[in-house]
Every structure is written in C-alpha cells, then in structure tokens.
C-alpha cells in the first residue's frame, strides 16, 4: 500500500447507541481508536490491543466484538453499542446498579467491556428463560481480565441480574 493510500482518510458513518455519527478514519484506524478519539466514546477502554483483556468489548450489529481488533472501515454502516448507551450516571441500568451494589468494580477500567459482555449474556438468558449457573457466568467472564476484584462481585452482580431477567421473562410470557 502506498503512503497515500495508507493515509487516505475515509468517511465512516456508524450508529452508536442509537444515534448516527460520521467521522474520518484511515484504512488501518482501529475501531477502538475511532470510537474513542474521533467520536469521543471514551468509555471504550483499550487494555491490550490484542483482543485478550476484553476491556474494549462492544456490541457490533448486536454481536460482541473487540473494538481493538477491528478496523473502523469495517464498521462503516454498522450499529455499535457502547457502555455509554447502557444507563446514565443519575439513572443506572439495573446491570450497572447491580455492579455498584455488589462492588463488582474497583478501578473500573475493565468494567465497560465486562458490562457489554454481561448485557449480551443476560439478553440471551432472558430469551432462553433458564437461569445460568455460577460456572456459566464465570465461563462467560473468562474472556475478560479484571485485576482488581478477583471477579467475585462481578459474578454475584450478574447472577443477581440473571434472576431478575428470568423473573421478568417469565412474567412477560405468563
């Protein structure tokens, strides 16, 4: 690739948390960098840039993805969900509130990615209508590294939300 092609900036349009945004990205701009530095979604955290730690996890067209391992140009015309879309500081989503209640975060750097994985997991739980075991929650979490908590609070928070999700789905189907 010539320098010109490498540095060519392309207009990228992404729907983030329900709103349309347009920004510029070179062919090699990582989606994480684009979301953070071009669009300002600083809640997307970058911990390893090699898709292991999970801090940058987002939902891309409804599927979990590592924003550090995708180019921004691949996300053109997609729909992205980030931690900023979950709830507001003054009105936390139930999952966020459960994290606070169970002290599921300390430094909070890995938390945005974990929240996105947990959200997808809990959506599945609600769909299937079967409560997950602690082991299943831990397996789901194994795609994330948290160095502060020892994971215990995170597991408890997600299990508590799973119970709510099951109750809700039973209530809705009943």
């Amino acid at each position: 690739m010539t320098i010109l092609a490498r540095e060519q900036r392309h207009s990228i349009t992404v729907k983030v948390n329900g709103l349309r945004y347009t920004g510029m990205a070179t062919p090699r701009t990582l989606l994480a960098d684009f979301l953070r530095h071009e669009l300002g979604f600083k809640g997307v955290h970058v911990g390893c840039e090699h898709a292991v730690c999970g801090a940058c996890t987002i939902l891309l067209d409804g599927l979990l993805a590592r924003a550090c391992a995708i180019y921004a140009v691949q996300a053109d015309d997609t729909s992205v969900e980030t931690v900023e879309g979950l709830g507001k500081p003054e009105a936390l989503a139930p999952l966020q509130a459960a994290f606070q209640e169970h002290h599921a975060l300390q430094c909070g750097f890995c938390t945005p990615g974990i929240l996105m994985s947990a959200k997808a997991f809990l959506d599945d739980v609600a769909t299937v209508g079967v409560a997950p075991t602690e082991q299943q929650v831990r397996e789901m979490l194994s795609g994330h590294l948290c160095r502060c908590t020892g994971y215990d609070g995170i597991v408890k928070a997600i299990l508590a939300c799973a119970e709510q999700a099951i109750g809700k789905s039973r209530h809705e189907s009943g």
Partner: peptide
C-alpha cells in the same frame, strides 16, 4: 456504603489519562 466513584466508572464517564 456503595461507592461514590461507581456511577462515572459504570457509564463510561470517568476520565483516564488517555481520555
């Protein structure tokens, strides 16, 4: 007491050095 720090951290509003 639940932590004061949490709402900002849980909503992507906390500001770290790279922010």
């Amino acid at each position: 007491l639940p932590r004061k720090e949490d709402p900002a951290l849980l909503t992507g509003q906390a500001r770290f050095i790279d922010d």
